[in-house]
Write a protein that binds this DNA or RNA. Sequence first.
RNA 1: GGAGAGGUGGCAGAGUGGUCGAAUGCGCCGGACUCGAAAUCCGGUAUGGCGGUUUCCGUCAUCGUGGGUUCAAAUCCCACCCUCUCCGCCA
Length: 421
Amino acid sequence: MLDIQLLRNDLDGVAQRLAARGYTLDTTEFQRLEAERKQLQTRTQELQAKRNASSKQIGMAKAKGEDVSAIMAEVANLGTELKSAESALEALQAPLNTLLMTIPNLPHESVPAGKSDTDNVEVSRFGTPRVFDFEVKDHVDVGETLKLLDFATATKISSARFSLMKGGLARLHRALAQFMLDTHTTQHGYTEVYVPYLVNADSMRGTGQFPKFAEDQFGIERDGLYLIPTAEVPLTNMVRDEIVAQDSLPLKFVAHTPCFRREAGSYGRDTRGMIRQHQFDKVELVQLVEPEQSYAALEALTGHAEAILQALGLPYRKMALCGGDMGFSAAKTYDLEVWLPAQNTYREISSCSNFEAFQTRRMQARFRGEKGKPELLHSVNGSGLAVGRTLVAILENYQQADGSVTIPAVLWPYMGGVQAL
RNA sequence: GGAGAGGUGGCAGAGUGGUCGAAUGCGCCGGACUCGAAAUCCGGUAUGGCGGUUUCCGUCAUCGUGGGUUCAAAUCCCACCCUCUCCGCCA
């Protein structure tokens, strides 16, 4: 959510910056709603003040045993007038709020211009894609040949876009998550957190999934709970409605969770394999920092995700997303894209973003600084990494001519010494 | 799932219709005393919105959440949520 003051004071400037990410702000509608709101709110509050004063008088008069019928008569009509003013204000505030909640974040000045992923800018590159002297298989063929990956059974048990892993592959999947968690907690200073996988609507609103992306979420209607699409939701909402002490900052949390997404609107995309699933595991990094620190934190956090790819020896590139390709809540995003030989291309494996105060304003997540007044925190997060896609990358990049897959050395301790599948 | 108790400021805790955004204590901030500190004393100390003559003033809202009754609700009524205790069940 943007600062409504900013919209009031510099509407055209905001509209211009939003245009950079391909969003057209209806300034006329906003101004109309705002003008009406101001008029209605002033009117309502005047009536409330009048009522409060009269009620107070009645109270004082009664205490002294005086006759109150004169004042009572005076306030008699106030009630209906006030009620209609209040309901009119409420009726107006709903669309204004919805509008406000559905306006995306302003892109940072360093964000490249552009409309789609083809306009993203490569920032850096690590590793060299391996040259194969045999025909590479994709991860589905690698895994199914080894009899360790079974989509047919997953579909029977559940439905499409679910997967089932067995034996060494299931263990490798677990090993990857363990390795990531250990690295972030021991090397990068994150606190490991175990979180609920079902969260309430307030939490979904806090991080920006609601109201705009409600149809992308799995929900349990009768309980009003929703499956998390990422651990970002529970981790960031830890500070919702909190005022944290400045000396506790920065807060750095890491969690390994399953993530659930409907993938609405992605019909036909990545239907084969584990790339796009309704359920996948992810290790998520979240930082809550002072505003001046958030861009440094974004750089650091992206580096923490890169460290995993480097340790696993997976070639990747770091992309600065252009305005048109960024997510709704982000002010700036780096995507890390891992090399997938079977697709002969780089695919997203981590997305690291600075949200500035966009999420924390919705959540009222603040800290008390030198000014004495509570100030909004900035939130930064990123995948460190998507476990399923990391597994895909290992199966494809480390496949051998005989159909086996060698395992990167850093994972051996987590594999009980097993060095190949 | 059954029975009971309860949700009030940073924390503890009073308040059962009227100058109550809310006593008191703790904590925190400032000051006095002191060579300094402790103790003591004095003062201050919620958040959000709106308006303005914008280091301040005015006003509105907020006592778990949402409705209702009333001129007036922390207080009364209804629904829901949550916490605690006991019983049952359970990984």
